[in-house]
Amino acid sequence: MDMFTLHRGRVPLLISLPHDGSFIPADIAARMRPAARRSPDTDWHVARLYEPLAEVLGASVLKPRASRYVVDLNRPADGHALYPGRRETGLVSLIGFDGEALYRDGEAPDAAEVQRRINDFWQPYHDALAQELARLRAEHGRVVLWEGHSIRGHVPMLFEGKLPDFNLGTAAGASCGSDLQARLADCLQAQSQYSVAVNGRFKGGYITRHYGRPDDGVQAVQLELVQLNYMDEASFAYDPAKALPVQALIERLLRICLA
């Protein structure tokens, strides 16, 4: 099967959506608990938010087919923690965001299966990501990598209380230049409809941290959205009316990247 979809754009902007996929192969799903087979921790509908904007702007878009439960494309292949000392899901996670087991007793993947998933799913996505960044940088001399994510507003395992609506992450300023971060933050803070955090609970995952090399012409930014602002978190249903102002604000942010 196709492991990912890449639309090659014409401007120096690549939108990566590593948790957009929800597909779980049958042999894996058969060993999972029923609730996990729905892949509830998917970044639901982020492609629906971003793809129309990418078409207008001429940006590249990379998205996977498989769920993060198969392998998490935004985790390092060696499995080390992104936030040491905090509870979090992993490269091939055994728990979901609710802290419950994903697999039936005795059915969790072993080390050999984890490596197969890295080879079959993780590596192809990262190869495509690196190649598209290289193409855009060669053509334009610089490129912005935009990591599009979303999450439920309340996830007690990861954080207390409600997560801010728009969470901008730049690896605490290491993955992009200070000017770009400041302009993006100013844009977010200039509006009053949504709450905002910059390098708060979500500072950027592996992709942002690994590929963001501003001194080498690659700036990387992660945006974590709270899902209730554009969908129903219980049913996973997209809400076009609620999504419109979210898309409008995202478009302003993406245009800042291109400027």
Rank of each mutant, 00 (worst) to 15 (best):
R65E: 10
A66L: 13
G99W: 07
P52C: 02
R65M: 13
L91V: 08
T89L: 08
D98Y: 04
S39C: 10
R104C: 15
L53F: 13
L82S: 02
D105R: 14
P25W: 03
A77I: 10
P109Y: 10
Y83L: 15
A36V: 03
A108H: 05
A26R: 15
S22N: 15
A35K: 12
M32V: 05
A81V: 11
T42M: 02
L94T: 13
D41G: 00
A35R: 11
M32L: 03
G96A: 12
S93E: 10
D105A: 15
D27P: 08
H45D: 00
A29M: 02
L53I: 11
T42Y: 02
A108K: 08
L53G: 07
A47E: 14
R33D: 07
G106K: 10
A30V: 11
R38Y: 09
P25F: 05
V71Q: 03
L49C: 06
R65S: 13
P76M: 05
A101P: 14
A29E: 08
G90D: 08
L73V: 06
F97W: 13
G58T: 03
A108L: 04
Y103K: 04
G85W: 08
K63I: 08
L57G: 00
E107I: 09
S22L: 09
T42N: 00
G85P: 06
D27Y: 10
G99H: 01
R48L: 12
N74W: 01
A77F: 08
L53S: 09
A35S: 08
A101V: 10
R33P: 07
T89R: 09
E100L: 12
